[in-house]
Design a protein around this nucleic acid. Structure first.
Lengths: 346, 346
DNA sequence: TTGTACGCGTTATCAG
DNA sequence: CTGATAACGCGTACAA
């Protein structure tokens, strides 16, 4: 078992100084061709590679991006990561991941851990817990220390940084418009509590779309799910809530759900209640997921272009990292959504 | 914007030496209570945290685990990562991710990048490309350099290291036995080419289960999909292959598929051919995925316990990292599979 | 009780 | 053309 070889070892073996070796390997003009060849040959033989940690310490940059996301077992976030990783690698960066698991504490701890020199900047999406508590001190502190942050999807206006978001409002308007065009008269929305920014915006889009068409919103058609029911473990409770919605509002002929799970669960309940899709009720979800594509019937969705979001976020961050100048110049990139029509709508 | 504070700065401000500060912060008995308090108060005020990079360089360990996986937009791998991250964080480690994207080259490049000091050890699953080429030199080299590797799921006997696998053979036998018990007489298998180790083992399990029940395997019931059709982009081709299978073998009354996509696609085709599930044909998949749970009908599967695999792999790696002694003592942990019965079987 | 010196691996600067 | 030295930030053995 040979340990990784260092400049020092090469220097000793070849009986030259460390700095000579260093220069020879970087093809410096200062070094004679003779020595260069000797050193380079030796280095290649022993497969010399400079130690990243030492370089990081010296250069005060790690060439590593920290990602903080609430959850990895989630198609949307996984796709964003793929996008980030793609761009990061292309631009010579690595990617290190911290999961907040939707918890404020884990988000803070993970960020502190990574901020102490391990990374050059963050790409992150805020946990629900943090959004509910509205405590953003860890973001401010990080930014104050000169470490840039790019937020995506779940962002917050209070924090001044680059952002990549989806046009949630326009996207959900597109969806609801589609339902209206398709003849739906009583459109329900299944959404989250308002502190989840995207949920709020999507609800707003729903309301605006109705308004645009002169339809009076009915509060009993708006179902706001508490976050606790989001997990797969509480599927039954989610189902119960949705079933109640349908039972109390038999006239529902269109459903807009702000995520995949809600949409699929709603379709499941509708089937259980012997409703035909899309004849009796039409469904549209808001997501990028696989479930939608493979559901029966397949689900019409508003696609968020998750991978593009990741790519853009990584570009923004690396641009900031590599341009000292435009420090205080933050931008918000809006990714266009796209309505993907499948079998759950007419 | 205040940059992160260092020992040196604290020392200068308080007009003591760097080592005094260092010792004071670690509560060394050498330092007077007076100085300790002064230093600690100052450090707290400026929120001092030791620089990870400097510590890594000094200690020659990064407290970071490198993960190399073929694909992140994949429920199984995402769950494994969650398991790794869980254990890693609990034991004070971070997690850095490299995606091979199923390519040999990217696998090698990513590993080299991380191996140069960025991490202490790898947890990885081999790319299909690498398995096909059977070129494992990068694994050997990494191990030779004293950097431990733990492989999971897609492993290879040639490489001597810790491994975490699923009892693929037993798992698929369970599945096929179930189909046989349920009265299936003509059971097809949809699997991968043999170089994917798990595909091979699962095929073998299928054959053994048949044999155990005195059923003669029929080669036209064994469909081996080329890897190119795995991606979502080639769904139509996959569908065509499966449709042909069904059309040429109308007597098929049971299907065992080695992954989720194959199983769902097969169910879709069966429906298209007006077969009733599970009355006419029963289906079992091999996977942990969400698709199975939410499919219509929901899919009976052999669960791999992905998260447990990740946890075990991380434990193995960290154990090795923290115990210098048991160097050459490699073990293979086998995770038991579990048959989860849903609507696609009787 | 405090401070000095060293080393982790690298590169840049300056001296020889 | 080559080598010594300093610095990145930290911890620790040893000296004062």
């Amino acid at each position: 078992m040979k340990r990784k070889i260092t400049l020092k070892q090469i220097a000793r073996e070849l009986d030259v100084s460390i700095s000579t070796v260093s220069k020879a390997l970087r093809n410096s003009a200062e070094i004679s061709d003779d020595t260069k060849q000797k050193v380079q040959a030796f280095a290649k033989l022993y497969n010399y590679r400079p130690n990243n940690i030492a370089l990081s310490l010296k250069n005060r940059k790690t060439k590593t991006i920290g990602i903080i996301i609430p959850e990895i077992v989630h198609y949307f976030f996984a796709k964003v990561i793929r996008g980030i990783e793609l761009v990061a690698n292309r631009r010579g960066y690595n990617v290190i991941i911290g999961l907040s698991n939707e918890s404020f504490n884990k988000e803070v701890i993970n960020m502190e851990m990574l901020a102490n020199g391990s990374i050059d900047g963050f790409v992150l999406s805020i946990s629900k817990d943090t959004l509910a508590q509205q405590d953003y001190h860890h973001f401010y502190e990080t930014i104050n220390q000169g470490m840039p942050i790019v937020m995506f999807d779940r962002v917050v206006n209070e924090v001044n940084c680059d952002k990549v978001i989806v046009d949630d409002l326009k996207g959900s308007k597109k969806a609801v418009n589609k339902l209206i065009e398709n003849g739906c008269k009583n459109i329900a929305i299944i959404t989250t509590k308002d502190y989840v920014s995207v949920g709020k915006l999507r609800t707003q889009g729903y309301l605006e779309a109705l308004e645009d068409h002169g339809i009076e919103p009915q509060s009993d058609l708006i179902l706001k799910i508490v976050e606790e029911l989001d997990s797969e473990d509480h599927l039954e409770d989610l189902e119960a809530e949705i079933e109640q919605l349908f039972k109390e509002n038999k006239k529902i002929d269109g459903v807009f759900a702000v995520n995949e799970l809600y949409a699929l669960t709603a379709m499941k309940i509708a089937r259980k209640l012997k409703k035909k899709i899309p004849e009796d009720i039409q469904f549209i979800g808001f997501t990028d997921g696989v479930l939608s594509k493979h559901a029966t019937p397949s689900l019409t969705t508003v696609s968020q272009h998750a991978q593009t979001m990741g790519e853009q976020a990584a570009e923004l961050l690396i641009d900031k990292l590599e341009n000292e100048d435009d420090e205080e110049n933050y931008q918000t990139v809006v990714i266009e959504t796209e309505l993907i029509e499948r079998e759950s709508t007419k």
